[in-house]
Design a protein around this nucleic acid. Structure first.
Lengths: 196, 196, 196, 196
DNA sequence: TGCTAAGCGAGACGGTACGTCTTGTCTTCCG
DNA sequence: CGGAAGACAAGACGTACCGTCTCGCTTAGCA
């Protein structure tokens, strides 16, 4: 994240290289504070103090505290869209929805996601990064389910894949943001029916 | 809004009554600043200064700057859900979606709605008021469309009315919050098909 | 008849009046920190914390931390030029020089004066205030000694009063700033001779 | 200045020798920045950037930015005390005072001297170096005037040579630091009279 | 007419976090 | 090893809002 030369032939830039220790300490501190005090109570000063790091070191590498937390979040496996084949489009959909709704029922997770979404509204530039590194990858992973269904030949004459993604993620985020997150059997079934 | 004595037999409370002029000046100032600087750059200090009013006068009547803006918003007709009967569920749906998507394509409106949603995440108490006075009424208005369809007998075997509302408003808000608001023919048609 | 506030005293400005408690607490905190940590280690944050006061309250009333300390200093009697009549110009001069040199021999006092002089170099606006509220009053007090000598008729044909002030205060400050403060019999006698 | 091997039989120390180019570039950069932005706005980072040099290279050879500037200053002829014999103590004194007051009337020079004096207050170690390499040599040069007068036999029964130096330099610095530098006929004459 | 009660403008207050700045040290690679 | 580059810990700075408070003044109904 925010690394320039990623290829193996990368010419080292001159000067002292970025400190891996500080990098890790910052992410670790951010994660701890996230759990302890919640998204909106995490501060740059707090992260710096906890990580034993100068504030400037954070500002040098992340434009915003939300970017730090986004990097923390991006490193978590639990946000991956489940990919295993359940045998049919409806089953895949059900598995995805069930996982997603359950995950967003977790207090800490819900707070984290809400916080990221809020920040993405307040800072346009972070909004771009949030969409690019978090939202879009998940849409793509969801598209894989649709693609698999098409390959299987059981893609129903429902909405287009793009609309399907909007409906699914829209419903998830809407319930998250209106304080009605969490799993709901009826809702999952209705969504599956609407999309198939 | 936030007035105590609502019943017709209301005994006048003693002391100086609330100043209508200040009330109006505050709402007007808030609306101006909203247009000029955008939701997140509106401050209580700013409203007070513009309205020529003490800050306390604002805090006395509204718990939060978002509540002021919510009252400004509530006074606008443009957010009403279209109610006229188009002859069928699909047509009603299309009319509603088209209006809503077009409205949220307006920059100022989008900023306003995003701002309210953001604030509803940051202050649980405002969140409640936002849901009660803004989101829920619109869900109810939407339910009226479904109810009319049922009365007409053309309600399709689609998702339950509640899920339908989640899908419709979820998709609207999701696109608004991910910077993809505005009308989209394909999306509207797909939504109508998914819900019918 | 009952007349309200018709007295000549200034008309109260509107709004909450300045808090005397905060004012005093800030000056007291500044003085304590001055003694404990020395001029250059006093910070606005430190004063605010010690005084239990918001930083803005300091910035509202003093442009610079040096102004706070200048006000602390201005309130101290020890910096007054001794005024009692010793009977002759030479004796008055000796009394003044001896007091001044002895005073500047005190570590805390020397640090304080050096700090003020340093700050007066770094911020032109504070420099003006320092000269106006500290240096000039002392020059005037010194001039009183000369005036008294003239009245007495024993003013010698030495340098003009203004030059005398430059010589006396110049020598005092020069020795203070070159780390050679404190009383020195020979120096005092030489100065007296040069000025008489 | 801060060079290790000074004696002519100096064994070359191992490793890469100090780069003369960097040395000169640093002094040149410091001087330019001094003129352009004034003493207090010169920073180590700024000098390093302008000189195209690493900060460490500066810190390796000078303890403080003030030491860099002190070396720049030391290289300037204009700060030399005029030494030619004017025929008498009073004339020598007048020549010296006139030169010094005129010099300190130059804006850049005054800023430079003030800056050095300020830094000498803030860093005790630099203060020592400032006194040793700048102030003391000038006192000695001034003493030469007194010595010449003694040799000539026209040394007046005024203050001791040491006090004379304190008075002269004290007055100069005092006027410089209180923003009243520059030549002043009356002052010069009064000083000459006081010292003779 | 005077009393009581609350609203009002003004603006100071205690706080919190921000993002910037400078200092002096350190860590890398290159010549 | 010296030097260029630049990251690093530390911590003060001045600003921006927040939500609360304290003034004196105004505006009402009630006595």
């Amino acid at each position: 994240m925010y690394c320039e030369g990623m290829d193996s032939t990368a010419k080292r830039s001159p000067g002292r290289p970025r400190s891996t220790m500080s990098h890790q300490a910052i992410l670790a501190a951010a994660e701890e504070l996230l759990v302890e005090h919640g998204f909106s109570n995490v501060t740059i000063d707090g992260i710096a103090a906890r990580a034993g790091v100068g504030k400037q070191t954070i500002y040098r590498w992340w434009p915003t505290k939300a970017d730090v937390i986004l990097e923390v979040t991006a490193g978590k496996a639990e946000f991956a869209v489940p990919a295993e084949d359940r045998g049919g489009y409806a089953e895949d959909l059900r598995a995805f929805l069930s996982t997603a709704f359950t995950l967003s029922g977790d207090t800490h997770t819900a707070d984290l996601l809400r916080g990221l979404m809020v920040e993405s509204q307040r800072r346009a530039d972070f909004g771009d990064r949030f969409r690019t590194t978090f939202l879009e990858p998940r849409r793509h992973a969801f598209a894989a389910i649709t693609r698999r269904a098409a390959a299987r030949g059981d893609l129903p004459p429902g909405p287009s894949p793009d609309t399907a993604a909007d409906i699914v993620f829209g419903t998830l985020w809407y319930r998250l943001l209106t304080a009605r997150p969490g799993f709901n059997e009826q809702l999952v079934e209705d969504l599956v029916r609407a999309l198939t």
